[in-house]
Amino acid sequence: MSVTSDLHTRTLPQPAAMLELIKPITWFPPMWAYLCGVISSGVSPLESLFLVILGVLLAGPIVCGMSQAANDWCDRHVDAINEPHRPIPSGRIPGRWGLWIALAMSGLALVVGWFLGPWGFGATVLGVIAAWAYSCPPVRLKRSGWWGPGLVGLSYESLPWFTGAAVLAVGAPSWEIVAVAVLYGLGAHGIMTLNDFKALEGDRQMGVNSLPVTLGPELAAKVACWVMIVPQLVVIALLFQWDRPWYGFFIVISVILQFYAMSVLLRDPKAKAPWYNATGVSLYVTGMMITAFALRTL
């Protein structure tokens, strides 16, 4: 039997394809943001190590993995154009298995979130709702180049940060923590916009109005850069206002390096977007952790 005919007659998903479906490479941002929340809370992580580990697993493999499975299921027609080798359009995850996996992981997320207390469970509920609202019709906020990346940015950065701080503090985080978490989540809108470049052709054909589709690659890249930079400038100003100048100084250096990386990106946005995601975004998330340590000392 040929490989092609085997894919068409397959009734069970390939184990490797199931792992590919939940995209481990995407788990880092929410896991990192949760750790930023833990650090910024001022509570020693060693005092609540179980909650730290459980929260990291929930933010990354479970909730983020679930969101990737839900997105791939709802995007299977777009992926058949853009990336037909992906698990669902390739047939390595046949039938409705992609949907069942996403639903099962949604349930698992809620169960695990329950053990993080009321704040952690509430945040988990919001995260699950956001994941499906982003991908699933009729809401499908992914169709908007403004609302979609904004929701993902807040879900990947702001919500885990808030959750990590609330779980360890066993209560609502300070307004400083909330403000910084929201700012970094808003800035992540630009990161999500750059991520849309790889699906430009399929999005255009399937009516997904990402910013690269509606504005064109060059203007969309410029918008993404400013959306990333402005919140960081506000964070720097806040750190100086809170008498944490050294932390602010290190983020200034990070922003300067990001400006250089952006100058490379803007020469050829479509080709350089993956490169920027490996360089400029690393500087962005480094600034998040620096800020978390600054908040810890307040």
Rank of each mutant, 00 (worst) to 15 (best):
H77T: 15
L99C: 06
N82C: 11
G150E: 06
I101G: 06
W161F: 13
A104E: 07
P84Q: 00
P94M: 00
A130W: 03
P94D: 00
G122R: 08
G120A: 10
P160M: 13
G122K: 07
A165K: 03
K142H: 12
G122M: 01
P94K: 00
W97Q: 09
G65M: 10
L154D: 07
A165F: 05
A123M: 11
L58Y: 04
L58H: 03
L154M: 10
R143L: 13
P87W: 04
E83A: 14
I81D: 04
L159E: 05
A59C: 08
I81C: 04
V128S: 04
G145K: 09
C64V: 14
I177Y: 01
W97G: 05
F115C: 14
P84D: 02
L58Q: 02
S174V: 05
P160F: 11
I62H: 06
R86F: 05
A123P: 04
I177A: 02
V56M: 04
A104K: 07
A80W: 03
A131M: 07
L54W: 12
L141V: 00
A104F: 09
F162P: 09
A80I: 05
G150T: 08
I62V: 13
G60T: 12
A169S: 15
G117A: 04
T163N: 07
P89A: 09
F121N: 13
P118C: 15
P118M: 14
G95Q: 05
G65R: 08
I177N: 00
G164N: 08
F121T: 13
Y156W: 14
W73Y: 12
A109R: 06
G91K: 12
W114F: 11
A104W: 05
L58P: 03
T163G: 08
W100E: 07
H77D: 15
P160G: 10
W100K: 10
R143W: 10
G122L: 05
G107D: 10
I53G: 14
D79Y: 15
A70G: 06
G148Y: 08
A102F: 12
G113K: 02
G171H: 11
V52C: 13
V125H: 07
L141P: 00
G91W: 08
W97R: 08
A104N: 12
I93H: 01
L58F: 02
R86S: 10
W114A: 11
L154Q: 07
Y156C: 15
